[in-house]
Amino acid sequence: MRPLAKQASSLIRAATLFLFGGLLVGPSLAAEQGNVDPELRQLLQQAINENDSFEDRFEAEVWLVDMSQRLKARVPDPQRRLSLLKQIHFEAKRAGLWPELVLAVIEVESNFDRFAISSAGAMGLMQVMPFWLDEIGQPGDNLFDIRTNLRMGCTILKYYLEKENGNLTPALARYNGSYGSHRYTTKIYTALDNRWRRY
Rank of each mutant, 00 (worst) to 15 (best):
S68R: 06
L157T: 05
S9Q: 11
Y199W: 12
F90I: 09
K6G: 14
A173Q: 04
S181G: 10
L29A: 13
R41E: 14
S83H: 12
L101M: 01
P38A: 15
P3I: 07
K163V: 07
R198L: 04
N149K: 02
A15K: 00
P139W: 00
N142F: 01
F90H: 07
D113K: 13
K86F: 14
W196C: 00
G177W: 01
R195Y: 00
I12H: 02
A30R: 11
Y175I: 02
A122T: 09
D193P: 07
L168V: 03
N49T: 03
D145C: 03
L4D: 15
Y199G: 13
P3A: 10
G96K: 12
Q138E: 04
V36H: 15
M123E: 07
L19Q: 10
N194W: 04
P38D: 07
R183L: 14
L101W: 00
K86N: 13
G34M: 11
K158V: 12
T186A: 09
Q69I: 06
N176Y: 03
T190G: 08
G180H: 08
L192S: 00
N49P: 05
R13Y: 02
A122D: 09
A47V: 13
W63Y: 06
S83P: 10
G153E: 01
T155R: 10
E32S: 14
I188Y: 00
Q46K: 15
R151G: 04
T190F: 06
M1I: 10
F18M: 15
E109Y: 00
L125W: 01
E135Y: 13
S10H: 12
Y189I: 01
A191C: 01
D113F: 09
L85R: 00
G166I: 01
L101T: 00
E61C: 07
E164A: 09
N167K: 13
W98F: 12
M126H: 02
F20K: 12
S53T: 10
E109M: 01
I146Y: 04
F90Q: 07
F144R: 04
A5H: 11
R151V: 02
L161G: 03
L29Q: 11
P27N: 05
F115H: 14
K93M: 13
I48L: 09
W196S: 01
T148L: 10
D145M: 03
I88S: 01
N149M: 04
E61S: 10
W98A: 11
K72W: 09
F115K: 15
A95V: 08
M67L: 06
R70T: 01
R151T: 03
P27M: 06
L29I: 07
I48F: 05
K72V: 11
G180I: 00
L161N: 03
G177I: 06
L44W: 10
P139D: 01
M152C: 11
N194V: 03
A8R: 11
D77Y: 04
L84R: 02
L24Y: 08
R70N: 03
T169N: 10
D113E: 04
D113R: 13
E61L: 06
R2A: 15
R70D: 05
D37E: 13
L101R: 00
M152I: 12
